[in-house]
Amino acid sequence: MADATKLSLNELKDAAKAIRRLIIQITTEAGSGHPSSSLSAVEVVTALYFGGYLRHNKANPRDPKRDRFILSKGHAVPVLYAALCQAGYYSFEQIMTLRKLGSPFEGHPNMKRLDTMEASTGSLGQGLSLGVGHALACRLDGLDAHTYVMMGDGEMGEGQVWEAIATAEKYKLSNLTAIVDQNGYQQTGATKDVLDLKPFASKFDAFGWHTQVIEGNSMEAVLEGLAKARAVTDRPTAIVSQTKKGFGILPILEPTGDLNYHGKPLSKELAEKALAHLA
């Protein structure tokens, strides 16, 4: 098992930019998908793959010793395809087949078709339970592998998430980190208007988790948060990552009057502007 890739801060910021560009290119080419939900999560995913956190094995993506990243908010899978492309798993041409008939780069992660996907997700609320299972299995096998699960803030409305939160604490799963990508929006509007769960941090805290609230679109803050989470050895860790949906191209989205921009790709024209903005 190779060590995790560890780029410098500036290199990480460049990688994040490259991943954002890929997200826009592949979703615009697909003509559907969730670019804005993917963009909010870029710093965290970039830091995990390139900031020294995920030990992975290109020759054997299911290596039992690997660290795991489960994308529970499966609709944001373009960020994962883009990161894996950036990491050399897939070519640009491959991920440009996103959502097309016959492509394994499906609209939501399908672990049966891609061995880099840790879970098949898309029905929200299920990833953290899978993460608990991975963490329990790694502990039983004496592996020091760490499991990260990313959820959306809207997804936290699913009751199963809270069942998993309680279970992770019961087993003191210090090898598990939950990241809530709190981008503030869900399908039909602002999360605070649809189903306001109020602060997440105090809830995780009440369940006995180590909890941090970070500025999730700041690479520095993300790296610091991940480092703190890994230093915890007696309980599961939560990172409430406060982000902006569509981060990175907000000046391009603003004139459209839709800062949620949920579940729709950028038009070719907007995509060009966005790519120029990210150049």
Partner: peptide, 22 residues
Amino acid sequence: FNVGIAESNMVGVAGGLAAAGK
């Protein structure tokens, strides 16, 4: 593992355990 009265999570935890080879 007894995960309590929470069948949804119970099945998900099993899915994760299986993905990790159990």
